[in-house]
């Protein structure tokens, strides 16, 4: 079984290296911010995995929920245990396609990314606008989008409802480098 797996990955990889069209980052950054009169909540995640297949314009992102770092330990605890239930749903993912990826060049331009966003075990079709810059060395993807907590089944108890925004702004900054083994 393990050999089959290895061979499979090997075939996959040689494909990639010959075509040289896969771009990847293992330390992309995703942050979110919620601001209410009562308190501001900010969290950073600098361990985001994102892959772009430059031949097809497909994009895949994986995010570990426990990698979100908060200023206050208690907020981080509540986030993981009560809101996103990261023991049950340790990852958030996005799988999609960059529309008109061939138009992306070394001059900053906006393109839409359309795909399925999965948070807290709930999948939702989403279209996100992002700024793209593509050079030989990197594909930069920068932008933001709004996550409505209720859409993803994330319940905020009434007691703290005033402390957290219903719509959370999520920023992302992903610098993909050519994948080489």
């Amino acid at each position: 079984m393990k050999t089959i797996y290895t061979i499979l990955i090997y075939i996959l990889l040689t494909n990639v290296t010959t075509a040289q069209e896969r771009y990847l980052t293992k330390n992309g950054s995703v942050t979110f911010f919620s601001s209410t009169p009562i308190e501001d909540i900010k969290a950073d995640n600098n361990q985001v995995l994102s892959i772009i297949d430059a031949s097809s314009g497909k994009m895949a992102i994986s995010i570990l929920m426990k990698s979100f770092m908060f200023k206050k330990a208690l907020m981080q605890e509540h986030f993981n245990e009560n809101y996103v239930e990261s023991d049950k749903y340790p990852k958030a993912t996005f799988k999609g396609e960059i529309i008109k990826f061939e138009g992306v060049s070394d001059v900053k331009s906006t393109a839409q990314v359309k795909g399925i966003l999965t948070i807290h075990g709930v999948s939702k079709e989403t279209t996100i606008d992002a700024n793209f810059v593509r050079t030989n060395e990197a594909i930069d993807v920068v932008g933001d989008f709004i996550v409505n907590l209720a859409d993803f089944g994330i319940k905020i108890p009434a007691v703290v409802a005033k402390n957290i925004q219903e719509n959370i702004k999520v920023n992302f900054n992903l610098t993909h480098k050519p994948f080489k083994k």
């Binding site: 293992k26 995995l49 994986s62 570990l64 426990k66 990698s67 340790p90």
Partner: peptide
Amino acid sequence: CTGYLMDVI
């Protein structure tokens, strides 16, 4: 440890 994507982090 925060989890595993391609790598353990």
